[in-house]
Design a binder for these strands. Sequence first.
DNA 1: GTCTATAGGCAGATAGAC
DNA 2: GTCTATCTGCCTATAGAC
Lengths: 195, 195
Amino acid sequence: MAKQLDESGTASRILDVAEELVQTRGFDGFSYAHVAVELGVTSPSLHYHFGSKAELGEALIERYAARFLEALDGIERDGADSLAKLGAYARVYGDVLRRRRMCLCGMLAAGYDTLPEKMRDAVIRFFDENERWLARVLEEGARDGSVAFGGDARDVAQSIISGLEGAMLVARPYGDAARFDVAARRILDGLVKRR
Amino acid sequence: MAKQLDESGTASRILDVAEELVQTRGFDGFSYAHVAVELGVTSPSLHYHFGSKAELGEALIERYAARFLEALDGIERDGADSLAKLGAYARVYGDVLRRRRMCLCGMLAAGYDTLPEKMRDAVIRFFDENERWLARVLEEGARDGSVAFGGDARDVAQSIISGLEGAMLVARPYGDAARFDVAARRILDGLVKRR
DNA sequence: GTCTATAGGCAGATAGAC
DNA sequence: GTCTATCTGCCTATAGAC
């Protein structure tokens, strides 16, 4: 019973539908009408919950980022070694793709130029937070010896994020999750101590 | 004086403007009106050259893919070793990004679900052709010893494409080409013979 | 080839009844 | 909270004059 439950049931159902639409069609490819039809209501009623499309978009990213970071917390708590954590991290992306969706923020990154400013900031924040989490895990892995890499952990973290986002981006048109898995595996293999 | 010059000057100027718009705003984020304003004409006149937005989109991909493959032919002809060719390949992507654009087909891959079918097919073709080219270079590199990798060359090729597409996707919101360069470098470094 | 005029639809958003 | 009605604007596309 925490902060994220101050949304009425309707608001969160709106977010559910809008989230799927944005993840599959992009922010410029969905409308209030799409959401309304899916929910069996009229579009003006959506405006009661989210005054503008920009507000809806902001709420979308906020919830997505919060859940994403929660998942990362869960990985953290599992107490496995760092390499296993990186594997679990990649699996979070893979799970999104297996539901035939693009990462919400990856999708928004594509249409970045057309986004309202607050949404832009939130997208950047999402990537920054992911980068911080990954860099921490990487440095921990370098200490405990489960991971090996040259250069700055931040740079490696950025490469992992962009590698996984790109793997989702390209795998989706093919409708082929295995394509993602292969790319993800190669990214992780590059972080294993070289024998 | 070849096949690609059967377009009137106007048609190719339309393609120029539309290309930039799609690469920065996505297919659902640009309109005939945007192009028309930029060219100082009215939108109906665009319909004379490209009957529908779908046709314009198809022509866009066709020209982009043709030029892209030409660039790859140029790399091929330079006769450097395979690792150098892969570096040049990555630079093609980097050059696009430095013009503040996303790869046209990477952008279209994001909005894939909203594309007309012929455009979808053309996007897939683009990736397939890139994969073929890369796999050939990788196999050549494995033979001449300039490149080292485990597993299938096709899988490695796919990973390179998705890695570079993702690096562009994420670097663009940050307006930071260096971010791309770092990720691209790490991809290439993973293909250098391990000492 | 490019224009004006216009059709017909869908977008995001607001007003006001219930 | 959700509805109907409506506004304004932009969209793709066509007809027909020049």
